[in-house]
Computed example of a mutant assay.
Amino acid sequence: MKKKVVITSEFFGRFSNEAERLLLEAGFEVVGNPYKKFLNEEEVISIVGDADAIICDLEKITKKVIDSAPNLKVIARRGVGVDSVDVAYAAEKDVLVARTLGVVEKPVAELVMAYILQIYRRIGESNKAMKEGSWTKILGNSLEGKVLGIVGLGNIGKELIRKAKAFDMEIVYSDVMRNTEAEEALGIQYVSFEELIENADIISIHAPLLESTKNLFNYDTMKKMKKQPVLINTARGPIVNEEDLCTALEEGLVSFAAIDVFDVEPKTDSPLRNHDNAILTPHNGTFTKEVFINMDILAAKNIIDYFK
């Protein structure tokens, strides 16, 4: 009897059928997302009942979902974060949780650099002025010598460091675990979290969402930012307190913010919408055609490899 792969992802196969072809050729039955949208818990449960494997995005794979699929052996995430999956319960039920490592790091780092260049060179403002018929030279800032602080030295943080090095930035990082090997290889300096927020011109968050990182960037944290830095979050929304960030932007504690992730998604009513010194994007970090195809293929291969 064929193993069944149920696709709860709304984006799987959007640009290529290569991943589905791999699964079919390997002898799997493949069932797509019939709703063609981001699924809530009830909708996920309605389609995974006889699944041997699931390919998901950020829809919640909860204890109830796992219990509703008694044959489930693999949950393949299109991405690297697993906070949307009840990993502990999956382990308890002997269900493997796989990620698409090596696929998302570069595009997320590209987005962060795009934010930095947009903010520092004030491209949007210059474009707006020109289109309004005004030849106004808007003074920006150079990146050379600016201190980039990386909070969380995972694979995305390391990729960002490689890209930022090309702009001659000084780079420091903070993490729960010091990585001397990365320090030597990448030419970066470890500092405490307190030192980082006090001295960085730009702070980019790449930490996972844990109890210890939830609300990590609150008003008290932002009051300690001596350089009124640019704050960038492409990790997880709840790491930054949105209301506190609004206050910090208004008071000049943070000069500019670039936010790609939110406490609830999708979110169209963020209070940050009212701030000209904030750039908001709808969780676009991995949103490129190439990444979608590669995530599909790696998620499929993770399932194929497991059952082999």
Rank of each mutant, 00 (worst) to 15 (best):
27 G>T: 06
118 Q>P: 12
107 P>K: 11
168 D>W: 12
182 A>E: 10
115 Y>W: 08
67 D>Q: 11
42 E>S: 14
145 G>I: 05
248 A>P: 02
297 I>H: 02
79 G>P: 00
232 I>S: 02
180 T>P: 08
214 K>Q: 12
1 M>H: 13
263 D>Q: 15
276 D>A: 14
133 G>L: 00
148 L>V: 04
10 E>W: 13
187 G>I: 03
79 G>K: 02
168 D>H: 15
249 L>F: 01
95 V>W: 00
15 F>L: 11
295 M>F: 03
168 D>P: 03
230 V>Y: 04
33 N>F: 03
123 I>F: 10
149 G>R: 11
57 D>C: 14
228 Q>P: 06
34 P>Y: 05
167 F>C: 02
83 D>Q: 08
275 H>D: 01
138 I>P: 06
58 L>A: 15
11 F>A: 15
299 A>K: 03
145 G>D: 04
217 F>S: 01
253 L>M: 14
214 K>C: 11
205 I>Q: 04
210 L>C: 07
135 W>G: 05
226 K>Y: 02
221 T>C: 12
152 G>Y: 08
229 P>Q: 10
44 V>I: 11
19 A>M: 00
277 N>P: 01
153 L>H: 08
271 P>C: 05
45 I>T: 10
170 E>Q: 15
125 E>A: 13
186 L>Q: 06
192 S>W: 02
207 A>G: 02
60 K>I: 14
193 F>A: 05
134 S>H: 14
75 I>F: 03
290 E>N: 09
4 K>M: 06
215 N>F: 03
189 Q>W: 03
27 G>L: 05
110 E>T: 08
115 Y>S: 05
299 A>E: 05
176 V>S: 12
120 Y>R: 13
192 S>D: 01
170 E>S: 15
273 R>Q: 15
68 S>Y: 06
57 D>K: 13
200 A>K: 05
72 L>F: 05
227 K>H: 06
148 L>S: 10
128 K>Q: 12
112 V>F: 06
141 N>Y: 15
159 E>M: 12
186 L>Y: 07
214 K>G: 06
212 S>C: 04
79 G>A: 01
83 D>A: 11
57 D>F: 15
54 I>A: 03
130 M>P: 00
69 A>G: 02
105 E>N: 12
